[in-house]
Amino acid sequence: MTVEKLYDAAGFKTISKGDGKKEVKAIFCCDMLSIAMSKAPASGCWITVVSNMNTLAVATLTDVSCVVIAGGVAVGEDMKAKAETEGIALFTCEEPAFETALIVHDLMNA
């Protein structure tokens, strides 16, 4: 699956498009940044409720394909701007992390 499939996924809102052609090869849920830093798989879809600039720093360093802020947590304007500048695909989803992961999982296996 490529990132662009998430642009119009049910329940998803696109905050920053990033590179829509990037492959999503895995799903990863984690809210502790140090653990995400060492465990997030490259080309993964990282689902978290941590919505701040540091989330984007970890996303860049781990080469995940996209980030989904789950649980209806909002994304600030500064974070949106940074994601756009860095070319990071960033989404929000109203569903909690597990349900969000299921949506991505279903799309990956569709």
């Binding site: 809210d31 502790m32 940044l33 140090s34 653990i35 995400a36 830093m37 060492s38 978290t48 941590v50 701040n52 540091n54 989330t55």
Partner: peptide, 16 residues
């Protein structure tokens, strides 16, 4: 609250 404080900083530095 920002997502830090897992207590993995120095252990990760040593490990990697």
């Amino acid at each position: 609250a920002l997502g830090f404080g897992a207590g993995m900083g120095l252990p990760n530095m040593k490990k990697y």
